[in-house]
């Protein structure tokens, strides 16, 4: 694979030995339970130098074959010194999927978490300002969930009409 980087991280430190970890195409991923998430992220940031939160997103596994959980959060970390990457996964389930917010660790998580809330309906406990970011306030669904249809539920037609006479 010369197309894309393959920065494998060295062995994880001992305190994470119990975490599930896997590798695909040179990318290391670890799975963290929700209650240990912040602790692990904090160690990664402060002790292991993963100082950049490159991305934060979510996947809805509702229709995925053999999936055990409904949602999977993806924290995409990078180390700006060594250019290693690490993907931290955290799985959640209905109802009321909630995880603690990462904003105290990275200010950049603010909008990323708002986006996940907006599109997937996952709550981030302790987030300073958890409002919708892309969709209008008052939108009823979370559109990137798999049970929401691509064409929507008619929201896009539900607007007032202006004719020449009124305009």
């Amino acid at each position: 694979m010369s197309d894309v980087s393959s920065n494998t991280m060295d062995a994880l430190p001992a305190e994470f030995a119990d975490l599930l970890s896997s590798e695909f195409r040179g990318q290391r991923r670890i799975v963290v339970p929700a209650d240990r998430l912040i602790e692990v992220l904090k160690t990664l940031k402060e002790k292991l130098g993963y100082d950049l939160l490159a991305d934060l997103t979510c996947v809805d596994y509702l229709t995925y074959r053999d999936a055990q959980h409904r949602f999977g959060l993806v924290y995409n970390l990078a180390n700006t010194e060594t250019n290693q990457r690490l993907i931290v996964r955290c799985f959640l389930d209905d109802p009321e999927p909630t995880v603690p917010s990462a904003v105290p660790l990275w200010a950049g998580a603010n909008w990323l978490e708002r986006e996940v809330w907006d599109l997937f309906g996952i709550r981030f406990a302790g987030h300073p300002d958890l409002r919708r970011v892309l969709l209008p306030e008052g939108f009823a669904s979370h559109p990137l969930r798999k049970d929401y249809p691509l064409q929507g539920r008619g929201e896009r037609h539900n607007l007032p009409v202006i004719t020449r006479a009124e305009g």
Partner: peptide, 25 residues
């Protein structure tokens, strides 16, 4: 770094990170 910036915005602030060099694809 804390705000996850990248590209020219980060490089103008002294973050010497460029994926073309650091993770050559």
């Amino acid at each position: 770094i804390n705000l996850s910036c990248s590209g020219p915005v980060a490089r103008a602030s002294g973050v010497t990170r460029d994926l073309r060099r650091d993770e050559p694809y």
